[in-house]
Design a protein around this nucleic acid. Structure first.
Lengths: 237, 237
DNA sequence: TCTTGAGGGATTGTTCAACAACTCCCTAGG
DNA sequence: CCTAGGGAGTTGTTGAACAATCCCTCAAGA
């Protein structure tokens, strides 16, 4: 039915989805959906209808399904046989699970660091600066993004492809948890400072000290998030 | 061309692929291919032709592609745009990478264990027993399988879904590396004993000691594998 | 001889349409 | 109030078609 009317802006979307290549269409669709999920535009529990998305995105069902599979393996969607894909509803157990693995990986990476120099720490420096800048502007969304980048770059220092991938999945799921729990953005505030402190320790080569600080840091973060979540549950009941 | 002749056993395969449901066709195809890849039936670098597999497996190209995606995200296949999927050729760097993450996760899990009892250790006990039994029979293939099960059950003690999944991926890739490097199966022999020793430490509740032993254990294993690999390179040149 | 570039065949990327299989909800009957 | 069954709607799978890309071959030119 929508044939001649919406051709205008739909062409635009279709073009956006189909152009700027060097990756497959499915990957571009996935990227588009990933932003929506992480941003919290789609509430947890939402079912993503194939029919509906095929219509809007102007891609075939097969391509869309491939995008679904990509996001499913990132933990950003869950797939139930014959029922479709849904935005996952993370609970407190998931949060504990995520932080458990996160502490394991991040602390271990930091503890084993050696041969650090200014060049290698540059990406970390940039992320911290971006966080501080966002905090000054009061843009807590950007501060959150900068924080994720900081941690991704932190583990990147290990130079391990598989650690990078695992961490990327972890952080993506964590962002989903953030928006799902509707945690007040101001909660990010103290971590801008703590990231700077962490970086200073690394510049000084105090890796053991940094690892310990990071462990406490992550425990604190987890505790705050759990508190926020329980708070939210209390309100809604 | 192969229309009436091979209908017999192909029907069998088709039936095996299509029956025993409770999972999708794609997942069953993936399972079938996973075994072939892990078992080393398909040499590294082999391209898996869509056309060919569609013919043999009697599934559609779309379904086969979904199976490919599954295995790609497990690291058991690599996908190159417009060129198809291949059995990955792991090199020494990959081996280092795999063991790096493996040590991080396994040792951390063991170190944090508490409240162990006979019931929780039962799956570990079974895996160790299976390994010893296989070793007595000289069945090193089975010993390898039992070893993988031991480590999977070991991390399962942490009770973390995401750690389980990450480990499963790791071990699958590692098995691929084993067959890819064509390491002599006898190399598994000493680890049957070491698994038993590790289990004994856990029964005694000596988690810190167990973690240290496991760290050495995994370093040794990595070193032997690297040596075997270099050996192999030396011969072929 | 070596390099370069233009076919051409083969394979993958993507779309489409149809049907089968399954889930969920609603209703009739107990 | 509870259960069985049927229908609507959604996903699962298939097969065919066409476009896009890669790779190999072969010929022309330096």
């Amino acid at each position: 039915m929508p044939e001649p009317t919406d051709a205008a802006w739909l062409r635009t979307v279709a073009h956006e989805v189909r152009s700027f290549d060097r990756s497959s269409t499915a990957e571009r669709v996935a990227e588009l959906l990933r932003a929506r999920v992480i941003e919290g535009d789609l509430p947890p529990g939402t079912r993503l209808s194939e029919e509906q998305l095929v219509e809007v995105l102007h891609v075939s069902r097969n391509t869309l399904r491939e995008a679904f599979r990509l996001l499913t393996h990132e933990g950003l969607l869950v797939h139930r046989l014959h029922r479709g894909v849904f935005v996952p509803e993370l609970d407190e157990d998931d949060l504990v699970d995520l932080y458990r693995l996160r502490r394991t990986i991040e602390c271990d990476v930091v503890r084993r660091l050696e041969g650090l120099d200014a060049v290698r720490l540059r990406p970390l420096h940039d992320a911290v600066a971006a966080g501080e800048d966002a905090a000054r502007r009061g843009d807590w969304g950007a501060a959150g993004t900068a924080n994720m980048r900081f941690h991704q770059q932190l583990v990147a220092l290990a130079g391990s492809r598989r650690i990078d991938e695992t961490t990327a999945r972890l952080l993506a799921e964590l962002r989903l948890a953030f928006s799902a729990f509707a945690v007040p953005q101001r909660l990010h505030e103290p971590y801008v400072t703590r990231n700077r402190a962490l970086l200073d320790l690394l510049v000084a080569g105090e890796v053991e000290q940094a690892a310990k600080e990071l462990d406490v840091y992550l425990h604190d973060s987890e505790a705050e998030l759990r508190a926020a979540h329980r708070d939210r549950l209390g309100k809604s009941s």
